[in-house]
Amino acid sequence: MDSNQLTDNLCVRGQVTPDDVAAAKDAGFTRIVCNRPDGEAEGQPDAEAIRAAAQACGLDFTYNPVSPGAITPEAVQQQADALCAGEGKVLAYCGSGKRATVLWALSNPEGLSVDERLARAERAGYDLSELRDRL
Rank of each mutant, 00 (worst) to 15 (best):
G14K: 00
A105V: 04
A85I: 00
Y93P: 08
A82R: 03
A27C: 06
Y63I: 02
G86S: 09
N64E: 11
A49G: 09
A85C: 13
D46P: 03
T101D: 08
K89I: 05
G86Y: 05
P18D: 07
D19V: 14
A124R: 12
P68H: 09
L112S: 02
R13S: 15
A85N: 13
V90R: 09
K25C: 06
K89R: 15
T17W: 09
P109D: 01
Y63M: 08
W104A: 00
A124Y: 06
A49C: 09
L59T: 08
A56D: 14
P68Y: 12
A54F: 05
E87S: 15
R123Y: 02
V33M: 04
Q5M: 11
R31M: 07
R132M: 02
S67G: 07
S96Y: 06
I50K: 10
A56T: 05
D81S: 11
G86F: 02
V33Q: 06
L6W: 01
V102N: 00
D133E: 15
K98N: 12
V33D: 04
A82G: 12
E74V: 15
Y126C: 04
A27L: 09
L59C: 05
A92S: 15
A80H: 14
R31D: 12
L128S: 11
A92T: 10
L91R: 09
C11Q: 11
A27W: 07
G39N: 15
G95I: 03
